[in-house]
Structure formats: structure tokens, C-alpha cells
Lab assay of single mutants.
Amino acid sequence: EVTIKANLIFANGSTQTAEFKGTFEKATSEAYAYADTLKKDNGEYTVDVADKGYTLNAKFAG
């Protein structure tokens, strides 16, 4: 089991951190699915991958 950390950075400057656990593939998929649920209210996002894929920095356009 691994933990994927998602740093969510919103256009207004606020941030949120979420963690997803499971296999690498499952946890990564859940992190992206969570970011997708936030698109409606926060706009499209881009992701910078860090820490060999164990940290995802998602920046929302607003």
C-alpha cells in the first residue's frame, strides 16, 4: 500500500491537502478523480508530479 498526497492549489490562493491510499494505480486514480469533482466550481487544473509520482500538485485555474 502506498499513499499519494494531493496538494490542491486554488485560484484564490487557498490550498487543501488530501491523501489517497491503496496500490499506486488506485491511489493515483482516486486523486485525479477527486480533482475532477472540484473542476465544476474551481475550473480546469494542471498537475505537476513530484516525489516520483507520490505527490501531485494540482493548480486550479479558477
Rank of each mutant, 00 (worst) to 15 (best):
E1V: 14
E1I: 15
E1Y: 14
E1H: 12
V2Q: 04
V2W: 05
V2T: 06
T3C: 12
I4A: 00
I4H: 02
I4Y: 02
I4R: 02
K5A: 06
K5T: 15
K5F: 10
K5W: 10
K5N: 06
A6M: 15
A6L: 15
A6N: 02
A6S: 05
A6F: 15
A6H: 01
N7F: 14
N7Y: 13
L8P: 01
L8C: 10
L8N: 00
L8I: 13
I9E: 07
I9C: 11
I9F: 14
F10H: 01
F10P: 00
F10Q: 02
A11W: 09
A11I: 09
A11P: 13
A11G: 08
N12P: 01
N12M: 05
G13P: 00
G13M: 05
G13K: 06
G13F: 05
S14M: 13
S14T: 14
T15N: 07
Q16K: 11
T17S: 11
T17E: 08
T17Q: 11
T17P: 04
A18G: 04
A18L: 15
A18E: 09
E19G: 04
E19V: 14
F20P: 00
F20T: 01
K21D: 03
K21G: 05
G22V: 04
G22Q: 01
G22H: 02
G22D: 04
G22S: 04
G22C: 05
T23N: 08
T23W: 06
F24W: 10
F24I: 08
F24M: 10
F24P: 05
E25T: 09
E25D: 11
E25L: 10
E25F: 09
K26I: 11
K26N: 11
K26Y: 10
K26A: 13
A27F: 03
A27G: 02
A27M: 02
A27R: 01
T28M: 13
T28C: 12
T28H: 06
T28I: 13
T28A: 06
S29Q: 14
S29L: 14
S29Y: 12
S29C: 15
S29T: 10
S29V: 10
E30S: 09
E30P: 01
E30F: 07
E30R: 09
A31N: 01
A31L: 08
A31F: 15
A31P: 01
A31K: 00
A31Q: 00
Y32R: 07
Y32P: 00
Y32E: 02
Y32Q: 03
Y32C: 07
Y32G: 00
A33F: 08
A33L: 09
A33S: 09
A33Q: 09
Y34K: 03
Y34A: 03
Y34I: 03
A35V: 15
A35C: 15
A35R: 00
A35K: 00
T37N: 11
T37K: 13
T37M: 14
T37A: 14
L38F: 15
L38W: 13
L38I: 05
L38Q: 07
L38A: 08
L38P: 00
K39T: 11
K39E: 05
K39N: 03
K39R: 12
K39V: 15
K40Q: 11
K40I: 12
K40S: 10
K40E: 11
K40L: 12
D41Y: 13
D41L: 13
D41P: 05
N42S: 08
N42I: 05
N42Y: 15
N42T: 03
G43C: 05
G43V: 03
G43W: 04
G43N: 02
G43Q: 02
E44Q: 09
E44F: 10
E44A: 10
E44S: 11
Y45K: 00
Y45T: 00
T46G: 04
T46C: 13
T46S: 10
T46Q: 09
V47I: 14
V47Q: 02
V47E: 01
D48Q: 13
D48E: 15
D48I: 14
V49W: 15
V49I: 13
V49Q: 06
V49S: 08
V49L: 10
A50Q: 13
A50Y: 11
A50R: 12
A50P: 03
A50C: 13
A50I: 12
D51Y: 04
D51W: 02
D51K: 03
D51V: 01
D51S: 03
D51R: 00
K52R: 12
K52V: 06
K52E: 15
K52D: 15
G53C: 06
G53A: 03
G53I: 03
G53R: 01
G53Q: 04
G53F: 03
G53W: 03
G53V: 02
G53L: 01
G53K: 03
Y54P: 00
Y54N: 05
Y54W: 07
Y54M: 10
T55Q: 06
T55C: 06
T55A: 04
L56C: 05
L56D: 01
L56W: 08
L56K: 02
N57L: 08
N57T: 14
N57Y: 13
N57S: 08
A58E: 02
A58L: 15
A58K: 03
K59C: 11
K59M: 12
K59L: 12
F60P: 02
F60V: 01
F60A: 01
F60H: 00
F60W: 05
F60S: 02
A61G: 12
A61K: 13
G62Y: 08
G62A: 08
